[in-house]
């Protein structure tokens, strides 16, 4: 019954063709099949946000989407987004503000923050907190993460951080 299926997609701009079991989650596909271990596996039921990746331009839970559903999709992970330089300022701000300690939540946190920042404008701290509410961090207590995101929003809007 669990016949393997062929899928073809792009991951971080590269074409990928694989044969996968239907039950394989997207994040396990990225980590175990493709070796892209920047996306992390936490709760595996959509609560923690550690597995956050982009599919067709928007962030999703990598544990709540099947690899077979990504046939034809454009998937981006922290590896690709980091290499593109698009979030270099955000990564720098996370480092400067101590917005990470163990780093387990950080890839998901960065992609989630980037989605908010990419809308432009200056989100309030409340809006930042709401947007990252689906991403658990067990180290920082969140204040430093909110600080970092707020600072980047200000920088990108041309005002002083």
């Amino acid at each position: 019954m669990s016949r393997q299926l062929d899928i073809a997609l792009t991951v971080n701009g590269e074409r990928v063709s694989e044969r996968v079991e239907p039950r394989l989650n997207l994040v396990d596909f990225l980590r175990d099949t493709l070796g892209l271990t920047g996306s992390h596996v936490g709760c595996e039921h959509g609560v923690c946000g550690a597995c956050t990746v982009r599919v067709n331009g928007t962030i999703v839970r990598g544990c709540l989407m099947l690899a077979v559903q990504c046939d034809g999709a454009r998937v981006e992970t922290i590896e690709g987004v980091s290499d593109s330089g698009a979030i270099a300022d955000l990564q720098e701000a996370f480092t400067r503000r101590n917005a990470l300690q163990c780093g387990y939540c950080t890839p998901g946190m960065l992609l989630t923050a980037q989605e908010l920042l990419a809308r432009g404008g200056l989100p309030t701290r409340e809006e930042i907190r709401e947007h990252i509410s689906g991403n658990y961090c067990r180290c920082t207590g969140y204040h430093a993460i909110v600080d970092a995101i707020e600072a980047v929003a200000q920088q990108r809007n041309g005002s002083k951080a």
Partner: peptide, 18 residues
């Protein structure tokens, strides 16, 4: 799939086909 796949992951549900 935001509820269904979570229940599949937790093996609260095991359909033959999706």
């Amino acid at each position: 799939g935001q509820s269904l796949i979570a229940t599949l992951n937790m093996r609260l549900s095991s359909p033959a086909i999706l």
